[in-house]
Design a binder for these strands. Sequence first.
DNA 1: GCCTAGGTCCCGTAT
DNA 2: ATACGGGGCCTAGGC
Lengths: 244, 244
Amino acid sequence: MDLAEALEKIMSGLSSGRTIIVVGSMHAHYAGRSTSWLAEGDRLLIIKSDKSILIHRPTGYEPVNWQPPGVVINAQITEEGLVLECSRKSPPEILRIVITEVYSAESYRLVDNGEFIIHAREEDMKAAIINSPDIVEPGLRIVETERRIGDEYIDILAVDSSGQIVIIEIKRKRATRRDVEQIVDYATQVEKELGRKPRKILVAPSISKEAASLSMVLRVEYKCFSPRLAYEILSKKKGLDRFL
Amino acid sequence: MDLAEALEKIMSGLSSGRTIIVVGSMHAHYAGRSTSWLAEGDRLLIIKSDKSILIHRPTGYEPVNWQPPGVVINAQITEEGLVLECSRKSPPEILRIVITEVYSAESYRLVDNGEFIIHAREEDMKAAIINSPDIVEPGLRIVETERRIGDEYIDILAVDSSGQIVIIEIKRKRATRRDVEQIVDYATQVEKELGRKPRKILVAPSISKEAASLSMVLRVEYKCFSPRLAYEILSKKKGLDRFL
DNA sequence: GCCTAGGTCCCGTAT
DNA sequence: ATACGGGGCCTAGGC
């Protein structure tokens, strides 16, 4: 396909809100949050209906260059080739794509209202614990979730059977040294605000060796719990709820 | 295009290491690190030559479902439609895609050896500081970079004009409270290992208000420096080097 | 706009 | 395999 024809496909696709797919040889230059040059090669260029842009190489999960939704696109043919200038104001950045050869250029009116449901996330762990605080510790009572202290958010604030405040930080993956530091920071903020030293419990499916030893020093407790288990508990409960 | 024809395109593309692009209506189920269901809708399916898989909706930067490179793909036609089972062992996960209608299915032999160069990253800031430590502070001498203490890495270890050890942590973006905690942690480790309290300098283009106040408390110093400036300094130096 | 925090983050790198 | 840290991370939510 020649460049003029491809430009026509792109322009009409852009104006009608279609998703555009161009396969061809191109190079690109990005300037903004960083600066990059991509030399000539065969790639897949996707321009979505919300004006998000992706340049994909033939390997790898990630696009090599891109723009998030909402850019302004200027397309024209110059002596260099089919030039697409994709820019936005905030942050100030521009992606300049030069297509020199087009193997295919098509646009599609895609209708996608399909629901997307995802589970076994940190959110499910939180829900399971709120529903059954005993998962963390018998006698625990939930006080507040997503409590904001300063600019920070504490996953769960609770009170234990002896009346002591408990901070709970949930992680869906193995807890790291950083996670331990995070909950200690929260505890410092809570103590400043409420005037009492809280207990600190890190809930995660596992904990790294270094994080475990740091948690000893900083008096952070660890409770094993996984997103998968949380999801199973919630599913069962939901299943039962149907019969109640 | 009918499903059988699309299957044929996919199979031949897979066996010849081509990049496959399917536009059509599909639904998908993922089970592994999390669990998700994507209901029927029009999407773009990409199977790259390294067997990375992407399902893109008509909007948004991110794929809604995906698999990183290296999955095993099983494709067949069932009563549900064209079913692709993409699985891997570690971590154990599977993405099952059911294509019910195909608008387009093509494969391309993409040749991409183009170099990709990126600048104005943290790495450039580090290089500029190593080259001219005065950027951080007059009289500073670099001792070591990427020093490993335990499992952690310290960006730059230096000595100031009075002979005191200095830890430098570089951030390409505005420094946060977490960044301050990180360098304090490094300092603790350094003190344990070397027996002397180091100075702590956070180098970043800016610092959040909360991070600034925390840095006062924890005796972390802040030095303003940006990836863009670092890149400009390095470019000039390189330009000069050509004439020396 | 800033700030926080999650993510099937991905990715490189070192042990 | 685990662990750590960067990324133009992106995205959502709050202020």
